[in-house]
Design a protein around this nucleic acid. Structure first.
Lengths: 217, 217
DNA sequence: TTACAATAAAGAAAATTTTCTTTAAATAAT
DNA sequence: ATTATTTAAAGAAAATTTTCTTTATTGTAA
């Protein structure tokens, strides 16, 4: 593997920066459609409501160089971002828990733009097994162990009920999963080399509701 | 309005703290089930993998007081958190865009634990109008304007395609919406008094994929 | 009662992230 | 050519958040 990168990227980008990068990418894809060949950090900043220096620093992690008075090459920047984020390669994943949220993620087409490919979904519910959502088959949970032996899948999407999250997460790790995208409210404890990305709706609800409450005093 | 609060809460809690609060709440509800009447910050921190001082500072925003050598009263803390976050009252919301993600959010029962009540969903797709998902009716988009006149809904959940996000957001604001939970990738520009909570899946994917990439060097 | 240990609370320090400032490079206009 | 202006890049400062220290309080045990 060890493929050579086009640009000298930052080894460790700060998390706030990483979270902003997809926003740049989406915006840049839009302006590219409009035929914009070059774009400056101040222009991007104005559109996305970000400090121009922040934009420069954020984009610097990808290794692309901008030219004074011209800005960045739109095309180059898009590719550098996709490359840096890994959106332009196929990131295979398993999904466990085909409930409401799980089904939605399966049907959600935009995952493709993230290079995320859910190979299969697993559930223990007889009623769900055998169904296909968004072209993804729902298999019996036990098949996970068998299937993971043949496929080298690194990402597990966890959309189970909270009370089985820890157990399932451990199973996933035993199946060779290196990163878990955790949509449950449960805190899962795993060996520290396993990447756990918590994505709890309630965190967002908390910020939203609190800010709404703060505002109406 | 202006109801009296039980505890003297922090006027402005930092966002990272707000995002952690639901995690405490979920954990505390679990230990309460187990009959734990008091719990200390170090104990919570050990379970949730957080610095004990961090826990103390986070919980302090709710105004609850803990006792040395005893910790916090579980019951009191749960209620203070729910109260602070607004999870224990009914927060009415409209949802626009009953696609994959929108449907999932409608069916997603856990919103109830956040006190979030989606009164109605709106879409322009004839095929969807009239349907009911998770007990929520999908109405014709234009009905939004009519319905919002009678109901004093403050929260709008935006799950439309990206290219109509801005337009719909403006409509929502014109309908009296004060806070928008934006699940699209689009940056929406609204008057600054409107609260916009961006919740883009791709931000999380970015962090996850990048960390996975970093790890396998 | 008195000492001791655990822990919340308050404050200080450190680390991180964002914003500000300066410098240098590139283009356009004179 | 020369000058002026825009802008990326690098560095400094400010703000925010997290971690570390200290203090004071409470319960437990000698």
């Amino acid at each position: 593997m060890n493929e050579k990168r086009k640009y000298k990227t930052k080894s460790h980008a700060p998390e706030p920066t990483l979270k902003r990068l997809p926003g740049y990418l989406y915006f840049l894809e839009q302006v590219k459609e409009e035929g914009v060949l070059n774009i400056s950090a101040p222009t991007i900043g104005k559109e996305l409501d970000l400090d121009p220096t922040q934009v420069v620093k954020d984009l610097a992690v990808t290794g692309v160089k901008g030219k004074p008075r011209v800005g960045y090459n739109t095309y180059e920047l898009i590719h550098a971002l996709e490359d840096f984020l890994g959106f332009n390669k196929v990131n295979e994943a398993f999904l466990v828990g085909a409930g409401n949220l799980g089904s939605a993620l399966m049907a959600y087409q935009e995952h493709q733009s993230l290079g995320l490919k859910i190979l299969a979904a697993f559930d223990v519910d007889e009623a769900k097994i055998g169904q296909t959502i968004g072209g993804i088959h729902i298999l019996e949970y036990n098949k996970l162990f068998h299937l993971s032996g043949r496929l080298n899948v690194k990402i597990g999407i966890l959309t189970t009920p909270n009370h089985v999250a820890q157990e399932v997460a451990e199973d996933l790790v035993n199946c060779g999963i290196k990163a878990i995208w955790n949509f449950t409210s449960a805190k899962i404890n795993l060996p520290k080399e396993i990447i756990v990305q918590n994505t709890s709706m309630s965190s967002y609800a908390a910020v939203l509701l609190r800010r709404l409450n703060d505002a109406s005093l």
